[in-house]
Design a protein around this nucleic acid. Structure first.
Length: 299
DNA sequence: CTCGATCCCTGGACGC
DNA sequence: TGCGTCCAGGGATCGA
């Protein structure tokens, strides 16, 4: 499941392999994960891939202006448009020789000017692809939160400690931080010894800063190890990552905590399966079940 | 504001 | 071997 480190790994691979290539043509299979399939077919051919960037869990392929002075629609926006790609749960984006047969779940093929194709493969089609002008892209991206690798101590503390939601939900909320998913949320909470059901507002300043530090450390190490391959993540070279070997909580239900030997537990927190050590990560005090009558009195 | 529920989708695990 | 069932999960959405 591609989260920030996995997406970063793919982005780095694509930078090596397809930067500067021109897209010649577009072939589509199933298109229910594409915002406007016709826009891809209409606008991608003839455009060069100028940059490959990551934004949270999104990949952004910034495209050149139209080749040989073709008409640019109205505002000239098309000149700085991008292809936005989200890998969802099972998406892969990688170049392969055009001669190579496509897999069953390959739904987008971008023919390049060097005899290869960039292919998007996604069995579950939880991903997303969209051709967006600069203005539309900016509009999309402004809704997202801070980059977890860049976020300052002060901003992180503000974003977390002002919220009544569970810390697990906050870490997963892309409008709070962009790029963290279930694996790295559980891993960072384990490292910081914070129970996933604690409320953001109940973390003290020290806990919040610890969490930020371990989250950054984990994400950086995971990038170095080219991500976690749990089910079927492969990078742009078709290689699996290695970070799953370092997991301390995620996927370790029933195994012993590396710190205290207690059995790792899995519970649904904030709607997501959450792995934690019930001894190291002490649960929040059980909320007193305020009766509806009592709650009403305080109004 | 925050929550849970529901939907999307398919492969893989599991039980019989 | 071959069913059926359940589950995983990022994100959107909706109602409580």
């Amino acid at each position: 499941m591609p989260e920030l480190p996995e997406v970063e790994t793919v982005v780095r691979g694509l930078r090596q392999s397809i930067l500067g290539r021109t897209i010649l043509s577009v072939r589509l299979g199933k298109t229910d994960f594409i915002d406007d399939p016709a826009a891809l077919e209409m606008h991608l051919p003839g455009r060069r891939i100028e940059t490959v960037e990551r934004f949270g869990k999104f990949m952004l392929l910034r495209l050149s202006g139209l080749a040989n002075g073709d008409r640019v629609d109205g505002n000239g926006d098309a000149a700085t448009a991008s292809l936005l790609v989200h890998l969802g749960m099972t998406g892969q984006l990688a170049p392969s020789p055009a001669a190579q047969a496509c897999g069953k779940h390959t739904h987008v093929c971008l023919t390049l000017d060097d005899g290869r194709e960039v292919r998007y493969t996604d069995p579950r089609r939880f991903g997303r692809m969209a051709y967006l002008t600069a203005a539309l892209l900016a509009e999309e991206l402004q809704a997202f939160g801070a980059d977890p690798l860049e976020v300052s101590a002060a901003e992180f503390a503000t974003r977390i400690r002002s919220r009544h939601a569970r810390i697990k939900a906050l870490l997963l909320d892309q409008t709070v931080l962009r790029g963290v998913g279930n694996i790295y949320a559980d891993e960072s909470l384990w490292r910081a010894k914070i129970h996933p059901a604690r409320l953001g507002i109940h973390l003290n300043a020290k806990e919040a800063e610890t969490l930020r530090k371990v989250l950054q450390d984990i994400l950086k190490k995971a990038i170095v190890m080219r991500g976690s391959s749990i089910s079927d993540f492969l990078d742009a070279d078709g290689e699996p990552g290695e970070y799953q070997r370092r997991h301390r909580a995620y996927g370790r239900e029933g195994q012993r905590c590396y710190r205290c030997r207690t059995l790792i537990r899995r519970e649904i927190v904030a709607g997501r399966s959450s792995h934690f050590c019930p001894a190291c990560q002490t649960a929040p005090r059980r909320r007193k079940h305020a009766s509806p009558r009592q709650a009403r009195r305080n109004v």
